[in-house]
Simulated scan of single mutants.
Amino acid sequence: MARLTPPRPLTAEDDRTTFDCGREALNNWFWRHAWHNQEASVSRTSVVCDTQAGEIVGYVSLSAAQIERAWLAKSHQRNRPDPIPAVLLGQLAIDWRYQGRGYARSLMFFALTTAVHLSEQVGCFCVLTHPLDDEVRAFYGSFGFEELPFDPGRSMAIRINDLKHNGIGTNLRTDFG
């Protein structure tokens, strides 16, 4: 079994070229854009690495976002600003050699915990994501993400208050290492 680092910020020295999650869009974004977005403060990418092999096992990227109030369920629109502030979970991927070991789940908990902690400093209503396909949609759904009922792009979100209610954000511990 691999020995993993806890999630940490992506650095310029990290070798992204060997990462392959099996999904071209996620690989290309990571290879071409992750570091540039990090440098420009557009998004923050955290990586988990195999300490023995010295390679990136997985990554997750977070950034600020907003949602059109009209995309929410009517019960969540009342007395809300327009647009509504959110945290965007842009990408989450695990190298194919490490898939099936629960690392994606651990990275998801890290991302959600980070979002809850951020919400204590900067207001945000939810964590937003744009799943690539129905398989990814089911993965996010297993964490409580729901489709935004009126979003033509079929984005999914989970409310920060629901995360707090379920105990997410009480600490930053993950199952890595």
Rank of each mutant, 00 (worst) to 15 (best):
M1Y: 07
R3C: 15
T5F: 08
P6Q: 13
P7A: 11
R8Y: 01
P9M: 14
P9H: 14
P9T: 13
L10M: 09
T11V: 03
E13P: 05
E13A: 15
T17C: 09
T17V: 09
T17L: 14
T18S: 10
D20Q: 06
C21T: 04
R23V: 14
E24T: 06
A25D: 14
L26M: 07
L26A: 08
N28E: 08
N28A: 03
H33Y: 08
W35F: 15
H36V: 09
V42E: 12
S43C: 05
S43Q: 04
T45A: 12
C49G: 04
T51N: 11
Q52W: 05
Y59A: 03
S63E: 02
Q66C: 02
A70V: 05
W71D: 07
A73W: 00
A73H: 02
S75D: 09
H76F: 07
R78I: 10
P83T: 00
I84S: 00
A86E: 02
L89A: 01
A93S: 00
W96M: 12
W96F: 06
R97T: 02
Y98M: 05
R101W: 09
R101S: 10
A104C: 06
S106L: 05
L112K: 05
H117G: 11
L118W: 14
E120P: 02
Q121I: 11
Q121P: 06
G123C: 13
G123F: 14
H130S: 13
D134E: 15
E135I: 10
A138F: 08
A138T: 11
F139I: 04
Y140H: 11
Y140I: 06
G141W: 09
G141H: 07
S142D: 05
F145P: 04
L148F: 03
F150T: 06
F150P: 01
P152L: 10
G153K: 14
G153Y: 15
S155E: 08
A157I: 05
A157Q: 06
A157L: 12
I158Q: 09
I158W: 08
I160Y: 09
D162V: 12
L163V: 03
I168S: 10
T170P: 03
N171T: 15
T174Y: 09
T174W: 10
